[in-house]
Design a protein around this nucleic acid. Sequence first.
DNA 1: CGACACGCTACAATATCCGTAGCAACCCGG
DNA 2: CCGGGTTGCTACGGATATTGTAGCGTGTCG
Lengths: 111, 111
Amino acid sequence: MARQVPKRRNVRGSRTGRPIMLLLDLLSRRWTLRILWELRSERLTSRALRTACDDASPTILQARLTELREAGFVELVPAEGYGLTPLGRELCETFLPLHRFAERWRKREGD
Amino acid sequence: MARQVPKRRNVRGSRTGRPIMLLLDLLSRRWTLRILWELRSERLTSRALRTACDDASPTILQARLTELREAGFVELVPAEGYGLTPLGRELCETFLPLHRFAERWRKREGD
DNA sequence: CGACACGCTACAATATCCGTAGCAACCCGG
DNA sequence: CCGGGTTGCTACGGATATTGTAGCGTGTCG
């Protein structure tokens, strides 16, 4: 027993612990944004998610998934796979404009 | 001479290279989101920024700043410090709702 | 000149992440 | 019941990314 995930709740880059810092820290861990992005429109099994994320390491994917579940953004539905919770969906809405932005951004990426 | 920053343009987690992946990858590097956040309303000198970021390592801060400058989100105005470009400001707008979201999120963080 | 700020870098230690392999549990057809 | 497939998840050694401390060269001001 005793999952060895040692309380990741300590925000890495902030002494204040303001929620926004907590959130910013969570979101800027490797694959976190990507996972939310891939889950934005469909449920995926852990392996399908792995495939969607260019075969990222299952180690780190599981770690992120656990964090996202603890944060209440992602849930695991048995026999269905991972998906966003209503809260997670809200968070994801925030990033949808990012897609359009990214497209426009590329335009000026002529250099 | 010869800055040893070895062309970080390779997107880490994507074989497709879609702009959104490029952006997602950039944003999920340590301190990137934080830097954008701290710069959202004011110009900061490199040292002020460092202070604002809980004394993050100047090494990585410079690296992120360079990336953000190459991406066209951040600029260095001599004798004024770092600030967002119009493009960077647009990107930051995307994250403003994040603040309110983070506050609401904390509420359910009773565990 | 001396004291201070600036942007930025070197370098060793550490934390994080990657890639591969593989576990136990489950389902399903034979 | 057994073999072959899936699932979620973990171990572990090596590769990267990040940290912390110190300090460079430049500019500015008294």
